[in-house]
């Protein structure tokens, strides 16, 4: 019964991916799409189908995977159903990094992917900084980590706001994109990179399934069954930071997914993390893939920011779950 459910989701994912590859502002008939994928098409069609669309699909799936699984991990490590992957300051660091690359590296305008590089580096730097702050005084406990993350996020947001104010007119486009998120910059290389990084991080997170299970029931419970709580937490946060920072460097800050997807997955398969992690990843990938399809097709000729769509898709489903739970009580 479980295997069949997994198969259904995989199938859904595949079908959605096919739909996504067939959709786009250039109308390409399905037959030509298939031919292009196989290499039998003119350069223009191949460029659009393989480089742009396939790249986009991979980017969406990879980001969904990373955000979904990271959201699940973060909620379990902190035993907090409101936790999401940008906790501990990843989003604040990423946006600040991008702005700094624009403001101070203007002479390096030619440096390709400088925004992505800075976003990634700063997001990771933020985590390290938060960890440093939290470890002052000996042991690191979740509460201190969270507070440290809030403090650093606030600081970086303030700096970001100042930079936005002073350089508004020049950098408004980039800022707006970064805070709303989207996949329009995707290409085959970035798509595959994000997908692969998300996959590898996800598998590494899966290796910690027992620790995650035990941690969900409390630090003491976990310690009593032999889990090195601080080490597990550190490694898992590192995995979350790495995969999310990497994805976000290419897509901007897409919110809501990391928060709501684990809850959706949990209502389907319960709290056991081998299943929960996998389903969180798959549901996240599905959600983002559909968010991208809708973002491109809802209004003819325009592309809406993905973050809006994920909220529109996710919230009703989330409310439905809440409602169902209420009634069961």
């Amino acid at each position: 019964m479980e295997i069949s459910f997994l198969l259904i989701i995989f199938l859904l994912l595949l079908l959605s991916a096919i739909l996504a590859i067939s959709t786009g502002s250039a109308s390409i008939p399905p037959g030509d799409v298939v031919n292009a994928l196989l290499g039998n098409a003119d350069t223009l069609t191949k460029t659009i189908v393989i480089d742009l669309r396939l790249g986009r699909v991979l980017l969406a799936i990879g980001t969904g995977l990373a955000l979904g699984m990271s959201g699940c991990v973060v909620q379990s490590i902190f035993q907090n159903p409101l936790a999401e992957p940008y906790i501990l300051g990843i989003s604040a660091g990423s946006v600040l990094g991008v702005l700094l690359s624009l403001v101070f590296l203007s002479s390096f305008e030619h440096l390709k992917y400088s925004a992505q590089l800075f976003s990634f580096i700063f997001a990771l730097l933020t985590i390290v900084l938060v960890y440093r702050i939290a470890s002052v005084g000996g042991t690191i406990n979740p509460a201190t980590l969270l507070l440290g993350g809030i403090a650093i996020s606030a600081l970086f947001s303030a700096i970001t706001s100042y930079l936005i104010y002073t350089t508004f007119s020049k950098n408004i486009a980039t800022i707006l994109f970064w805070t709303m998120g989207g996949f329009w910059q995707a290409n085959l290389v970035s798509g595959i990179l994000v997908f692969v990084v998300a996959l590898i991080s996800g598998i590494c997170m899966l290796l910690f399934w027992r620790e995650l299970n035990a941690l969900s029931l409390g630090d003491h419970f976990a310690m009593n069954v032999g889990v090195d709580v601080s080490r597990a937490r550190t490694v898992l946060i590192a995995l979350v930071a790495f995969s999310v920072s990497f994805a976000v460097s290419f897509t901007g800050i897409i919110g809501f997914v990391g928060l709501v997807v684990p809850h959706i997955a949990r209502s389907i398969v319960g709290g056991e993390h081998k299943k929960l992690l996998v389903y969180s990843g798959l549901v996240g990938a599905l959600l983002l893939l559909w968010a991208d399809i809708l973002a491109r097709t809802l209004i003819y000729g325009e592309e809406l920011p993905v973050g809006i769509i994920t909220a529109l898709l996710g919230v009703p489903f989330f409310l439905y779950l809440l409602f169902r739970r209420r009634r069961l009580c």
């Binding site: 290796l207 027992r210 299970n213 969900s216 409390g218 949990r266 319960g270 709290g271 056991e272």
Partner: peptide, 25 residues
């Protein structure tokens, strides 16, 4: 006692085997 979470009785008892278990199962 412990924090409530949606695990089954079976899952919780399995957690007792955490010190012994292999990579994925």
């Amino acid at each position: 006692g412990m924090s409530p979470a949606p695990f089954s009785v079976y899952d919780v008892v399995c957690m007792g085997r955490t010190p012994y278990a292999r990579m994925f199962s």
